[in-house]
Amino acid sequence: MTSLHSSQEEILVVGGGIIGATISLALSRRGASVRILERAEPGGLATHAAAGILGPMNETDRPGPFLDLMRQSLALYPEFVASLVEETGLSPDLALDGILQVAPTPADRAELERRHLWQRAIDPEVAFLDGPAARELEPALTGPLDSALWYPKEGHVFAPRLIKALFGALTRRGVVVEQGVEVVRVRPEPSGTLAVLDNTGRIRNARAVVLAAGAALSAIGIPGPPVRIHPVNGQILAVRSPGSFYRRVVFYPPHGYFVPKRDGTVVIGATEERIGGRTRVTPAGLLEFLSPLAGFAPGLLSLPLHHTWSGLRPCSDDALPVLGPLPDCPNLFVAGGHYRNGILLAPVTGEILAEMIMGQDSPLASLAEPFSPARFMKDSGQPHQK
């Protein structure tokens, strides 16, 4: 069959969520011709469901490559957002006002002390606070509170506005976005290009392909063993807050978090449910992260409900990202498995994948090595630990 898009200079990005969009923008800024293939709505099931938290220290229980990758991405965020604002005039409401991780009771204190011991060696600004000091930073903490960890460099971004700004920049650059395209297979051609087949039988040719399809990535046929990505449903809600009473992102492990947004809402989440490719919102799921708030932030439970929603987080077999080319197909790249951290990891993923695809030397390349798809191939050794 003759390809409908035969330009060997074109790079196809499969998936129009935060990861696919950021990679596409990074490629376009390097002069590449890029086309995005999206099976549903740009923004994806994970991006629109995201609370937009930018908190590397909360996502790991030890130092290592995963923390290094997240911290590097957080360091890229101010410039990443500033470039989007300059290019589109759209602000994603980046707020690096700090994050609190709280211990509501004395029984929870030991875990915070353990975390503080190794985290302060990485960032001396990480502080251990008593209850009154934590309340000064977040007045919503009106109930009993033993202690907290304070991460002053972390924060959040408004995910829907971020994806809007990204697609505004892509549109200005002439990046084509094809919606309603469900890619089912990618196969190497004798010419060295890749053929991308969709569910209608249409074929597109490309010199390189990036699989950034989120929770749907595993369903795409590729050369060799599949890269397994599992969908994890996350339920979440938002309440409407008066004025600016709520100030900080607050984590209350293991139950959840709340995130005050600049539009006057407070996002509260989230569940983690392995129920296949379905999304759902249930009373039981909402109670899972709402009930603990009655103890230390009861005011949140009396605020007007704004809305509820859910989305699918893409989780790999070892719950770590999958970044880079397939070992046996060097022009087929995977950017998936970002799980709870797609928003946080978007800037560093975009830079790393764009530099790999364009064949550029990158100071970030070493950060991606532990997350290569090769770790899942036969005889590749044990998965890396989170």
Rank of each mutant, 00 (worst) to 15 (best):
H230V: 15
G359N: 11
V281H: 03
V239N: 05
V322G: 06
I23L: 10
G359R: 14
L345I: 09
T88A: 03
L197E: 11
G64A: 10
K386S: 13
G15C: 07
P383S: 04
G155E: 07
P383I: 07
G201L: 10
S218G: 09
G299T: 07
A165H: 08
F371H: 01
G180T: 06
A134H: 09
K261M: 00
I122C: 12
G224N: 10
H5R: 15
V210A: 00
F167I: 03
K386C: 12
P104Y: 06
P260Q: 08
R173Y: 06
N199A: 13
D130E: 15
N199W: 14
F66Y: 15
A110F: 06
T142I: 13
F333M: 00
C315I: 15
G155K: 00
A159V: 12
P304V: 10
G350D: 05
I236W: 02
A75M: 10
R62W: 12
D61T: 14
E138T: 06
L300Q: 03
E369S: 07
P139Q: 11
R228Y: 01
V250H: 07
V34E: 04
T349K: 00
T171D: 13
A219M: 13
P226Y: 11
R115F: 11
A133S: 08
R71C: 11
L320A: 01
L12T: 04
A212S: 12
P283L: 07
G224C: 13
S316W: 04
V239W: 00
D130L: 14
S33M: 10
I222W: 04
L211A: 01
Q179R: 15
P104M: 09
P160T: 07
Y77I: 08
N233F: 04
A297Q: 03
T265R: 01
W309P: 10
D328E: 15
A133N: 05
A335E: 02
G324K: 01
G16Y: 02
L194H: 03
R29N: 08
F371I: 08
V266G: 04
G64P: 10
G52S: 05
L305K: 05
Q101N: 13
P124V: 00
R228I: 14
L293W: 00
R172N: 09
T265C: 08
L364P: 04
G276L: 14
A365P: 00
E288T: 15
L312Y: 02
K164C: 05
R274M: 14
T142N: 06
L4V: 13
I19E: 02
L300R: 05
T105C: 06
R39T: 03
S191I: 13
P314E: 04
G143I: 13
V175N: 02
